[in-house]
């Protein structure tokens, strides 16, 4: 088991192998993710009972919660990928870290937007300085910093390493930021909003949520793989296998 894992890791370091294996995996992951998403969304939107307090407006949860969860774990993935790249000098891992940054940022934006849309009918306002909202906003800022460093440094290798250091420092700081914001919030929060506490959910509401969360993770994987393959094609555009691939124009779908 261990040697197989190790072999897989070493193979992953090869752009060509990574390209080929993820081309094979992606359709299946996409299929599973889409099936999960379809079930979760149809179940959640059509069959789950309406919330007794929020009515039908709670149904945005099936987009909002997966996006928020995933944008947080995406930052962690990015930091771990950067760490692997820094420690074991694995180039593919830098590529993965690089493609995650904009994806994570867009997920954070999605989470903030759906949160605002959800907040309007339930809290009566688009935005409150609530602990969760604020820490999501700060996460978005952290993503902006990482993206900015990729844009500012022209040398690819340097940019990758610099962004890796920044994302590692950021991920160490995330718990500190999260708890400080929460504490700040409990110090200052006016008692106008009482819905911030998560209601314990009924299983017929909860299971579709789990399904959409899993679906988001699958789609995320497909998305990361697709962007990584684009990067690989661009980086390796002068090698023979890419030229051959582009001439045959096969396997370039998805």
């Amino acid at each position: 088991m261990w040697t197989r894992l190790k072999r897989l890791y070493h193979k992953m370091g090869s752009p060509k192998w990574f390209y080929e294996i993820t081309s094979q995996w992606s359709p299946w992951i996409l299929l599973v993710g889409s099936a999960l998403m379809l079930t979760g969304i149809v179940w959640g939107l059509a069959f789950a009972p309406a919330d007794y307090l929020q009515g039908n407006s709670f149904r945005i949860i099936y987009i909002h919660v997966p996006a928020s969860l995933l944008s947080q774990s995406a930052y962690l993935f990015m930091a771990v990928a950067g760490l692997v790249g820094l420690v074991w000098k694995m180039k593919m891992s830098f590529v993965v870290a690089k493609v995650i940054a904009p994806i994570g940022a867009s997920l954070a934006i999605m989470s903030l937007l759906t949160g605002a849309i959800w907040g309007k009918p339930t809290w009566g306002t688009w935005w409150v300085w609530d602990a969760r909202l604020t820490s999501m906003l700060i996460l978005l800022f952290l993503y902006f910093g990482v993206i900015a460093i990729y844009n500012a440094i022209e040398n690819d290798e340097m940019a990758n390493k610099a962004a890796a250091i920044l994302s590692i420092v950021g991920s160490i700081n995330i718990p500190v930021i999260k708890y400080s914001v929460e504490w700040w919030n409990t110090l200052h929060q006016p008692a106008t909003i009482t819905l911030t506490k998560k209601p314990t959910m009924a299983p017929e509401m909860f299971i579709p949520l789990i399904l959409t969360i899993l679906a988001f993770y699958c789609w995320f994987a497909v998305w990361v793989f697709a962007r990584t393959r684009n990067e690989i094609l661009f980086k390796e555009r002068k090698t023979n296998w890419v030229k051959k691939l582009l001439n045959n124009d096969k396997g370039a779908q998805l």
Binding site: I138, A148, V169, V181
Partner: peptide, 29 residues
């Protein structure tokens, strides 16, 4: 991180300010 960059001045706040937030919160409170 930004020492070798010509455009480092504008980049620095983007990188560092989010990390300063806990300081700001606890110091001012």
């Amino acid at each position: 991180l930004t020492v070798g960059l010509r455009k480092g001045g504008m980049l620095m706040p983007l990188l560092i300010l989010p990390l300063y937030i806990p300081v700001l919160i606890f110091a001012s409170s």
